[in-house]
Each structure stands twice: as C-alpha cells, then as structure tokens.
Write a protein that binds this DNA or RNA. Structure first.
Lengths: 342, 342
DNA sequence: GTTTTTTGTGCAAACGTTTGTATTTTTGCA
DNA sequence: TGCAAAAATACAAACGTTTGCACAAAAAAC
C-alpha cells in the first residue's frame, strides 16, 4: 500500500534515516555511491516524500494559499494560471479557496489556510470586505501577503493592480481620436477603487481634449448586460455619441440596444468596454476593450510572493500593470472590415 | 508571531497537551468546564490548529487533489466550483493542479499530490494521456480516484461523464423537428469518448428519423473557430442545411462564415453547438447548444469522492449526467425575434 | 465503610521528516 | 606504520498532534 518511508529505505539498505534523507536531498555529505543506492531503492519501493512530515519538521510549507471571489470567473481563472506558471516551477503548490464575494467565507478561508500553515496568502478580497483584521492576522503571523486586483491600501505587503486610470484614459482618448464628441461613461460602484480609477481616467482624457465632462454623462452602477441595455435611453437623451464602459457586459447591452434600434456601431455610436471578456472578439460588431492581462497579473503576484519569501522586503510595494487597449470594430468611426486583433 | 500550539495552551492552563487536544476535538472524556477554559485560552492565544501535524499523526489528510487540463477554462472552473461547494462543507480542501494537456505535467501533478498525502484524486485527464499507470498508482496506494469528463474506462473508481450520446441525440432531433433535412456533423477526435459518443448520438437521431446519414456528412477534428469557418465550403458542397457541432467554437466559425456569405441563420441554415460557452447567448444569432452542466458535474464528483472515502464502495461506479438542450435562435426554422434564454 | 463504577487527566509513544552533533571510516602524508 | 584531517555515516531530538493505556479522584452501589 502507501507505505514506503525514508525509514523503510534506510532499513533495506542498512543505513540510517538521516543518510537517506540527506541522500535524497542531494546533500554533499553523503557519498555518490550511497546516493545512487538510495535513489534506486526509493524508486524500487515507490517512495513518495511526505511533505507534511517534512514541512512540520522544517517549519515551512511549500503550499501557498490563494483566495479569489470566484474561481469560475474567467479573469480569476487566468490569474490563477499565471500564478501557477511561476510558483509550480519554484516548488510551490496552490491551495485555492473561494470567498463567493462573502466576507464570512473569506475569513473562514483565511483561517483554513493558516491551519494549513501556508507560506503565504494571495488574495483578491470580496466586494463585501471592508474590515481587514483577518488579513492583518496573516501579516502578524509573519506570513507573506500579496493582494491583487482588489486591494486594501491600508495593509502591508505587495499589491498588484491594473492601471485602471491609464487604461480608461487610453480608451477614452481612442474614442476622441476617432472623432466622437460627447463621450459618456458606464461605471461601477465607486466603493471599489478600480471603478473610481476608471472614472477618473475617463474624465482626465476628456479634460485634456477640452471636451465636455459632467455628471450627466456618467452613469453609475451599470455593469451588467441588462443595466447597459436599460441605460441607453438615458445615454441617448444625454446626447452621447459614444461610451467608455467599465465592463464588457454593460457594453454588450449597449450593442444589443443599438442593434435593436437600428443605431449603427461604430457608424453612429462608439463603444469601448473593459476586461476583454471571451465574447468580446466574437460578437458583431466585435468589441473594442481594455485587456486586464490576468495571466500577467498572476505572474506578478507570484513574483511578488517569491521576492518576499526570499527576504526581499525592499521589492516594490505596489505594482500597477498597464492595461492594453484592443481596438476592434465597435469604436472605429467608419465601418471597417472584420479586424481581429488578439 | 505564529506560535500558539496545543502545548502552549496546555502549559498556560496547567494541563497536558492530551487534554487540550481532546477538549478542542470535543471529546466527551474531558469535562465541560475544562473544555470552556481551553477554548477561551485558544481564542486568547490566537491558536490555529496545525493540520499538517494532525494529518501526519492521524494518517489521513483533509485535502483532496484535483487535476484539470486548464484551470482557466470556463468548464473546468465551474466543475471546480461544484466540487468545492460539496467538499468544503465536508471539511475538505482542494489542492488544484493543471496538466496543460500534457501527460508529463499530469504525471508530475499526480506525484505532487501523492507527496501531499491527499485523501483522493479527482481528475479529468489530458488529451494526450493514453497510459494510465500513474493513476493506477493512486489506486494501488488505496486512495480514492474519481475521474470526470474525460475518463479511462479501464481504471477502477468512480467515473462521472456527460451523457454525450443522448445530448447529441437531442440536439440532432431538435434540428430535425425544425424541418432541417440534411444535417451534418462537425466532430472532434474520435480518440476521446466524448466525441465518439456525440457522433453516435447524432447518427442515432438521423437513423430514427430515417434521414440520410453517411461519412460525407461528418467532418472530423473540427473544433476550433477557424476550423469551423473553413469547413463550411465542404459542408455546403455536401448539401447540408444544418449542422450539429461537437463544440461551440466550431459553431461560431460556422455562423461567421454564413454571415459573411449572406446565408441566413436560422432561415437558410441551422446550427446547434455543444458546451454552452459564455459567448453562446451573446452572439447574433444566439447559439443553440447543449449545456454541459459543469457545476452539477462537480457536485457529483465530490459526492462520489465522499461516498468512497466513507467506505461506500457499492455506490454507482459510473454516473452519466444528462445534457440539457438550450434552444436559442441559431436552430429555429423561422427567423424569430431575439429570444434570450439563460 | 468498603467496593465498584464512572469520570476526568496524565503519560508516553507515534506519525515521517530534518539537522546539529558525535562517531566512525577513509584518505593523505610523513 | 602511524596520525591527523577529511569524508561519510550514525545518533537523537524535535516539529505539533493524537490516542491507547494507566491512573487518580469522585460518585455510585452495596
């Protein structure tokens, strides 16, 4: 069965467990000869190291905990992927947990991870979370904490976010360049810094161009497809000829409304979304959008973790990842042919 | 720092670690009074149980390993979600690993999980995998193995799959009911049973209806958007007026080709896809498709695991989950209004 | 008041590693 | 051949739990 411990190998070879341990670890204090013997025997017995025993003894574990609101969201799936791409080769494994956007679940997840004596916690906190004492506890225990996407500035440790301000700035500027004059904004809740930054970036671009800006052009809490669809009446009433949307789903609703009303996109109306959801290149017209670069973010998160675990506390505290504008059809002034930019 | 062990609590209370351990475990052999004392002290010291020490001693761990080809694929994200929904409340945690569709990575993942002494392995194997000795090893160690989606019939243990045969049967029948006469099939590699079953289900429906069936109507290895697009010339040359596609991406390619060529869907041509990818309801025309019910599958996987871990070896060996046909626009005979079914 | 039973704790070993120190063996060199 | 230095291995304790067994004190039964 699942026997085969270091001790079994030791007995079979008439050496001590210490020697076997060192042999397997490649410690130079054991001779080449016995190392080969040990490796052969380990292979023969189907030995699998017991990381629990090892971590217990060493006091450090090779698993790191990751908490995301929902694992089945494209964005987070990609972040996780990006993290694994760096962490696995470095010998770490990921214990993944979901908060389901609920602070209670998040707290429970943190405790579970602490029980597992993870080497660190990587988290994008739930939308509900406003009290961060559970994460402070992580820091207090001397563990590495890396926040990403949704971060609490008040907490120590690395923070990796998208550069939403510049992204929104870029997107809006792109609309301006394409000749749109009265550009509105479908935004999210301003309690989340990502949405606040997008609003600010959007406004900055308008200001720079000397275009009209004002509250009547900004529509708060419009992130779903339905909300985007429903908001269009007000958007048109406000005289807008384009929109920068803080989310692709809202932009989708906009496109559907226009199709239904016979408003040509991009002929009569321009749209840029945010997130590059998987449907963005697939709908008609294809949706110009800001790419969040989730995989990249995952890489950065993992690197920040490794930096800190290896004692590089000096590594930059806050990393902002540039968002890339993907120009597709929905934001061009003239109806163009199908251009796939990926 | 991260101190606070059972021993510390014991010392602070002038009792032995055994008593503390029993108190925290709710063992009736310790008095109500001391239990409360212990719990209070544990709280005060910020005690977090060390599951590694616990698992080591008990010989069983509360983590279960899960291996998927890619974590950032919608389907697998949802399966994982479904697994967690059952396993977390049962006290288990998930150690997740990706095979990246490479058999080498898969083998490595299995070994990692074995090193973590997981209670079981839940796996959908990589498309490359044809030799299953690494999974046999899992069984040999007496661990629980649950396969899902892509399964190897030769291996012991639970197998949870979608009922692709009946799904394809349903989808094809639906096209028949809507008046399509010469229905083709865009399929995947027949090495994977899911694709083989879909082909068979498709053929069964045609046979039942007495419609033409034949190799000239079946297009193998057409699963990507590009492949779907490119296959259309041959499909039309074969005289088809509808397609059942084994994947939504191929169906998307079909739709794009038709749009480009001015072929009306569903007026002139009908399409049903498979998987209900996130873009399916969002494109125009919206895509009729078979839902894979990933979350549900995750639930079943978790339940199969729990059954086995609790010794219910008699629980059904092979579970087949019905696929649901989602009728949208792409498969209706007459051009209908935009109907959103989600 | 003694014996039996019950109840609550303590003792000590074990899970599989790792690692500082001690010990043995080998090697180099006079 | 002898001896120090170097190389290889052994010893033993520790990581934080859990648990069978022993044991004492209290409660119940006689």
């Amino acid at each position: 069965m699942s026997k085969a411990t270091i001790t079994h190998i030791a007995r079979a070879l008439n050496v001590t467990p210490s020697t076997v341990s060192r042999a397997l670890a490649g410690n130079p204090r054991v001779s080449e000869q016995t190392r080969l013997l040990v490796q052969a025997k380990a292979e023969e017995l189907g030995y699998e190291p017991n990381v629990m025993a090892s971590s217990l003894r060493k006091g450090v574990s090779n698993t790191v905990g990751m908490i995301v609101p929902r694992i089945n969201r494209q964005f987070f799936g990609n972040v996780i992927s990006g993290v694994e791409a760096i962490l696995n080769p470095a010998g770490y494994n990921l214990l993944i947990s979901q908060s389901h956007e609920r602070v209670a679940d998040e707290v429970k997840s943190v405790n579970t991870l602490l029980s597992h004596r993870v080497a660190g916690v990587l988290i994008s906190h739930s939308i509900e979370t406003t009290n961060f004492s559970h994460l402070q506890k992580v820091l207090d225990k001397g563990l590495v904490l890396v926040q990403f996407d949704r971060v609490a500035a008040s907490l120590q440790g690395a923070q990796i976010t998208n550069d939403c301000f510049n992204g929104a700035f870029l997107a809006t500027k792109h609309l301006i360049k394409n000749g749109y004059k009265r550009i509105g904004h479908l935004g999210g809740t301003l309690l989340a810094s990502v949405y606040l930054d997008r609003l600010k970036g959007y406004q900055a671009a308008l200001n720079e161009a000397g275009l009209a800006t004002g509250d009547e052009l900004v529509f708060q809490d419009v992130i779903t497809r339905e909300a985007g669809f429903d908001a269009m009446q007000r958007v048109l009433a406000a005289g807008c000829d384009a929109l920068y949307c803080a989310g692709d789903y809202a932009a989708l609703g906009v496109i559907e409304y226009c199709r239904q009303q016979g408003i040509a996109i991009p002929g009569d109306f321009g749209v840029v979304g945010t997130a590059n959801e998987s449907f963005a290149p697939l709908i008609a017209p294809s949706l110009s959008t800001l790419e969040q670069n989730a995989f990249d973010m995952g890489n950065k998160v993992a690197e920040a973790f490794l930096d800190r675990v290896n004692g590089a506390i000096f590594s930059s505290h806050h990393t902002s990842i540039p968002m890339r504008l993907i120009v597709r059809d929905s934001s061009l002034r003239m109806q163009s042919k199908l251009i796939i930019e990926t």
